[in-house]
Design a protein around this nucleic acid. Structure first.
Length: 272
DNA sequence: CAAAGGTCCTGCTCGC
DNA sequence: TGCGAGCAGGACCTTT
């Protein structure tokens, strides 16, 4: 499910229900996520009101006087606020029971997600320490991306999906941004002109901002914490449309594996 | 059987 | 030959 827009949509959905609420208990039904869930630390975190519900890249943070819970949704993770008597389903791995009778429930069939805890500065945590700039912040400039491109021969798509270069850009939005910028996903990063890099920065920002505005992309089972779908799927121009005509020139869209991820592109609008 | 929205880790290759 | 950096591929897991 989640790239940056879906994580941000999740954050906005759950934050109002968590702010100033006191977690009373954390129930862990499945310890084996990406890393073992730190059950004891999560229980110790209970008892203090949640002051901040924040996001860094695709990580969500719940911060209180007792420390910081770090949550990653992986490929199939989902967070919702449910009533305390909501029946537990398969893959409902973690509950945070809150003082107002509701529960923050984490569901993740593939278990690529993570729940971590740190008592110290969460941005210094080993998993967050090396993250690159936020794509929608002033720190993500064409100068920055051009510098990263100049020292890499990797495919440009792999580069922009590298969280040390820029956070939050996954397969859907990398595919869309490259189409909008007219850049072939397999182009060597160091072969891009400065102009192409600027265009790419602008398109990454535009596509992410638009997707957040629309509440994220709902494919298969992504729904927002309020149960509504995201509406950005209808705005996708090439992702999931291999074999269909390019929306710009009508040529049939190609699909190929690039950096182990399926990539859709227009061979005419995005020449190699 | 292949593929699905993520990303960490291992081990290879290349250049100094 | 040895070392570090950069990179590709495998790994994790379930569902469709």
């Amino acid at each position: 499910m989640p790239e940056l827009p879906e994580v941000e949509t999740t954050r906005r959905g759950i934050a109002p229900m968590l702010h100033n609420r006191v977690p009373r208990q954390v129930v862990v039904r499945q310890v084996k996520l990406r890393w073992p869930v730190p059950v004891t630390a999560l229980q110790g975190w209970c008892g203090a009101p949640i002051e901040q519900v924040w996001r860094r890249g695709k990580w969500l943070g719940l911060s209180s006087d007792h420390g910081h819970v770090l949550i990653h949704l992986g490929m199939s993770g989902c967070l919702r606020i449910v009533p305390a008597d909501c029946p537990v389903q398969a893959h409902d791995h973690v509950d945070v029971v809150l003082d107002h009778g509701k529960v923050l429930r984490y569901t993740d069939p593939r278990r690529f997600g993570a729940w971590l805890f740190t008592a110290t500065d969460p941005l210094h945590h080993p998993r967050l320490r090396h993250l690159g700039p936020e794509p929608l912040s002033a720190a993500f400039t064409s100068e920055w991306l051009a510098r990263q491109c100049s020292r890499s021969r990797r495919a440009i798509k792999a580069l922009i999906m590298d969280s040390r270069v820029v956070v939050g850009v996954g397969n859907i939005y990398a595919t869309e941004a490259l189409f909008r910028a007219g850049i072939h996903p397999a182009r060597g990063a160091n072969t891009l002109s400065k102009r192409a890099v600027s265009r790419l920065v602008a398109e990454i920002q535009a596509v992410l901002a638009a997707a957040i505005e629309q509440g994220g992309t709902t494919l298969q089972d992504f729904t927002r914490p309020d149960g509504h779908p995201g509406y950005f799927a209808q705005a996708l121009q090439v992702y999931g449309r291999a074999g269909q005509p390019c929306p710009r020139c009508g040529t049939l869209l190609h699909q190929q594996q690039i950096a182990q991820r399926s990539s859709v592109f227009c061979p005419v609008c995005q020449p190699l």
